[in-house]
């Protein structure tokens, strides 16, 4: 995947002002950045859910902007995406959620479909939970079922949107290990969007740090951790004040108190 000079604005606010990215085949790439920098928006642009104002997004040499609706759907069949909350279909049980893409896109005999679904559930450790409904799953379990569903069509690219949000340490460790293991054993390419610097650093091959509408740093996690630039240091070490100020822009304190009176 290659991104060059990506520009995107929403409601007259510039979100991206010229982003370049290179996602290598077989790698786990982390896209990090403070809240509100447009990480999820970037994923939506990469997957053709949003249209960029300017710039080029290429997936396996195909320009996403030039694809028709059918072309975008063909491209997405080679992708899997894990949403922040799992986005499981709430009226279907775990088994049917994982089987959903297969039922929609293939005409596999029921016996073969069952083999595939159970194999994917086994890969995420939830074969035993196949009859549970989404409401009966914990956050971590829902995330793992969504992972099984994302890999059920054997995609080439797997995209994770904030996969660690709200997980307890055990579930977080499981999801982290699964990201790396699925990537390596299935020969995938993975993009993980998160602001969880330390956990992500343990599984990512390379990182991109977004801020202020552009990429402010990129490279292996170790390089970013030792970067001395103020904005990179503030994010990587979680400093409360810096280029991203602690205080939201406000008028003079005394002046504001007077106004209220």
């Amino acid at each position: 995947m290659r991104v060059r000079g990506l520009h995107y604005s929403f409601a007259q606010r510039a979100i991206f002002t010229g982003i370049d990215l290179d996602i290598d085949r077989g790698s786990v790439t982390a896209v990090m950045g403070p809240s509100g920098t447009g990480k999820t928006t970037l994923l939506r642009l990469l997957t053709g859910q949003l249209q960029a104002d300017r710039g080029v997004i290429e997936v396996e040499g195909e320009d996403v902007a030039k694809l028709s609706r059918a072309g975008i759907y063909r491209m997405r069949r080679r992708m899997g995406m894990l949403f922040q909350n799992g986005a499981l279909l709430t009226d279907l049980d775990v088994y049917e959620n994982v089987a959903f893409p297969l039922r929609e896109h293939t005409r596999l005999p029921e016996r073969l479909l069952r083999h595939v679904v159970l194999a994917k559930l086994q890969a995420v450790g939830l074969r035993g939970a196949y009859r549970l409904m989404p409401a009966e799953l914990s956050g971590g379990m829902a995330r793992r079922v969504a992972m099984a569903r994302a890999i059920v069509m054997d995609p080439q690219l797997l995209i994770y949107d904030e996969p660690f949000v709200g997980l307890d340490p055990i579930s977080l460790g499981v999801v982290l290990r699964l990201i790396r293991r699925l990537n390596d054993t299935l020969g995938l390419t993975s993009i993980v969007v998160s602001h969880d610097v330390h956990d992500l650093s343990t599984v990512a091959d390379s990182c991109y740090l977004l801020s202020g509408g552009g990429v402010i740093a990129s490279g292996p996690p170790g390089t970013l951790a030792t970067d001395t630039r103020e904005d990179v240091r503030q994010f990587m070490h979680g400093l409360p004040d810096g280029p991203v100020p602690f205080h939201y822009p406000a008028p003079e304190y005394v002046e504001q108190l007077r106004q209220l009176r």
């Binding site: 997957t47 859910q49 899997g80």
Partner: peptide
Amino acid sequence: DQLAAMEMMA
């Protein structure tokens, strides 16, 4: 995001 997830599953 169930509708968006469907979109992503083509």
